[in-house]
Design a protein around this nucleic acid. Structure first.
Lengths: 223, 223
DNA sequence: CTTGTATCTGAACAAACGTTCAGTTATCGT
DNA sequence: ACGATAACTGAACGTTTGTTCAGATACAAG
């Protein structure tokens, strides 16, 4: 019966504004942003946005939720593919930080240089999220310092004690003699530049990779 | 000569407040938060935080920067290890969203189910960030729909035209007959649960993996 | 075409905001 | 021990905020 509010448009405008300014506009700014003449119209729009979960009210002020500011729309699986544009709106919106980082004050990001964890799917150039302070479980990948050398290894235990295993037979498992410092536990792996690796594209690389993995079964890992 | 302000403490308190409320406190709230009696003290503290890059002023109001709200401290390489606690403060703080997502309105996250890209380091359960709308370059990994089936493949071209290559010799390269829809280009790969894979732990798995990769050199990818 | 109703206008309002300034306090460096 | 000075107190101020209310408006449904 009555006319309808352009909620979708408002959300898009607020998103752009947030991106530019990292804040929500005040009522007076929303007047221009939404094209209203009255602040009461803004109040009505904000009420609707709050009902839809884009905002919360705190201390008489609008606060953006992750649904508004988050930059990631979560879909299903690759097999399911992309939904139709209409359905896209329904996807949950999240922030990668909330998704991956539980203890921000203890989480660091390091870049991987060596190929010692390559069989675990961690390639040189990958970034790893490291959480300090926890107790590693067997099979966790840890950043560890053994004799003044920092490395990435599987955290393992057997009859003889703690053992640090690489995921590459070119390197040997390490048994800490004197000092072992667990810097942190790998909580996530992030690859930013996704490209066809050269190793798979040239025969020389393919042979090298093939040899590398064949040796895995002889290593302590392949036990 | 004069006394010194507890800037580090203030930052920590603001971070905790932001985490809880997704906003900055008002001056009156900072009174209690920082333990001041006068709003002018708050103003001084905020000025200092602005100089240090934790805040900006917009419309007479403090706006948190990524340095304050970001949840990730960027360090160097794994070999470099962890800096001393004093140096940790100097690390750049970022948000994963800003780091990985350039066009938030066009970026989606999908979960990988199959193992068709396993040789590219993309394991079942991994999440991929897909950006819609771009033109894929050769070697890009794309989400493509071929004959009503969505898959993850390398985007390749040769004399015969477009070819979609898996990174697993168990699957065959695909040549689109009638329909080819490029859903988007993979911009990042994210692994959330980092664990020792079973395949590396049991001999059967190791053999299977070994065989898999040996075949890579015979596949079109290994040319 | 008519009618109901959500949407919007316009103005008035109290509350809260951040700023300012003169003066006090505490502590670091000498 | 002392002096210089940044850190802080306390109160007053103008501005902007979001809210409220009565009334006008435009559109979808019947």
């Amino acid at each position: 019966m009555p006319r309808v509010m352009d909620v979708r448009g408002h959300v898009a405008k607020l998103r752009r504004f947030w991106r530019r300014e990292r804040r929500l506009p005040a009522y007076s700014e929303m007047l221009g942003l939404f094209g209203y003449q009255s602040k009461n119209a803004v109040a009505g729009a904000l009420q609707k946005l709050e009902d839809l979960g884009f905002l919360e009210r705190k201390r008489g002020r609008a606060v953006a939720t992750a649904k508004l500011t988050g930059s990631l729309r979560l879909l299903g699986t690759v097999q399911a593919g992309f939904p139709s544009p209409a359905e896209e709106e329904l996807a949950d919106i999240m922030s990668l930080d909330e998704l991956l980082i539980r203890r921000p004050e203890a989480t660091f990001m390091l870049t991987v240089q060596g190929d010692s964890m390559i069989a675990a799917g961690i390639i040189p150039g990958d970034m790893v999220l490291v959480e300090k302070g926890g107790t590693p479980k067997i099979g966790d990948i840890v950043v560890a310092q053994v004799d003044d050398e920092w490395t990435l290894k599987y955290y393992m235990k057997d009859r003889e004690g703690v053992r640090l295993d690489p995921a590459n037979p070119q390197y040997k498992p390490i048994r800490p003699k004197r000092s072992l410092v667990i810097g942190g536990i790998i909580k996530a792996v992030i690859r930013n530049k996704v490209k066809l690796p050269d190793e798979l594209n040239v025969a020389r690389g393919a042979l090298k990779f093939k040899r590398l993995v064949r040796d895995v079964s002889k290593s302590p890992l392949g036990k």
